[in-house]
Design a binder for these strands. Structure first.
Lengths: 141, 141
DNA sequence: CACAACTGTAATTGATATTATTACAGTACG
DNA sequence: CGTACTGTAATAATATCAATTACAGTTGTG
């Protein structure tokens, strides 16, 4: 799994937690524990999808522009990490003179496509707002 | 996803395809397109689980000792790649003085544990024998 | 206007993970 | 005893990932 997925989710949850829904890349990076430039790259992607808006210049930063209860991890996954389940290493070779070796790439591919669908279905039940509630509950136990 | 999973599955399908269920690490490596030493490592793991037996020495190699219709990808996944869904990169820090940042690792962890269960459920419906049948069907279309 | 505080983006470096390769001891067969 | 294998570890080569640096562009403010 791509770790940009984690950064995206964490950032959205953090913004949802802020009363005004705002934070700079530096604040987010400190909370996520990564570099501001990396946050900017990931959040730039979320902006294109309309989940956040950005304001450049002094006093600028990122602001949540979606309802956290409406955005699911499946949305974020599709945006940041689609296809990450399939390993980049491939076995077999279509040119091979063996039924198994020549078809394995295709078959493995369809297996992982199915797995990815399954994963998305699971993620589609988890919202950014739900994660925030989950965290808040832990706090009070 | 760990690519050893792919090597393990491919090897098992290949052995299941062989009439006598046997092949040497060199034959398997040629079919999978990797190095024999790597095949030996993976198949050594499958041996410990009882899916194959090995014979050292001249004329030796690997032999399938299970019913391919009984072994699922979930079995192989658990053996080779358990926990591979979770990225090794972690956001947040439990020591942090922020509700979100300090709890994110735990919450993300539980998200990925659930995802892994989901994935295993999907894999548990796919057998080595089923994959071989799938390949054989493609051949005749 | 000039400056400070931001984002956007790309290039570079450094760290880590992955795969291939080599090497050799151990085992079995003929 | 020699050949053909597995088992295993160490090393080298490669690819991937994350941190860092750098700087142009934007915006609010004195």
């Amino acid at each position: 799994m791509n770790s940009e997925f984690i950064i995206a989710v964490h950032s959205l949850v953090l913004l949802a937690h802020r009363e005004d829904g705002m934070a700079s890349s530096e604040e987010i990076a400190a909370n996520v524990c990564t570099h501001p430039a990396r946050v900017r790259k990931v959040l730039g992607c979320l902006r294109k999808l309309g989940y956040v808006s950005t304001r450049e210049g002094s006093g600028g930063g990122y602001r949540l522009t979606c309802d956290p209860m409406e955005v699911t991890l499946a949305d974020v996954y599709r945006a940041m990490s689609a296809g990450s389940l399939m390993p980049n290493w491939c076995s077999g070779d279509p040119e091979m003179d063996c039924m198994v070796g020549s078809n394995m790439q295709d078959v493995m591919n369809s297996v992982f496509c199915g797995a990815e669908k399954q994963l998305e279905a699971y993620f589609s039940d988890i919202t950014i707002g739900g994660m925030l509630l989950n965290i808040a509950q832990r706090q009070h136990v």
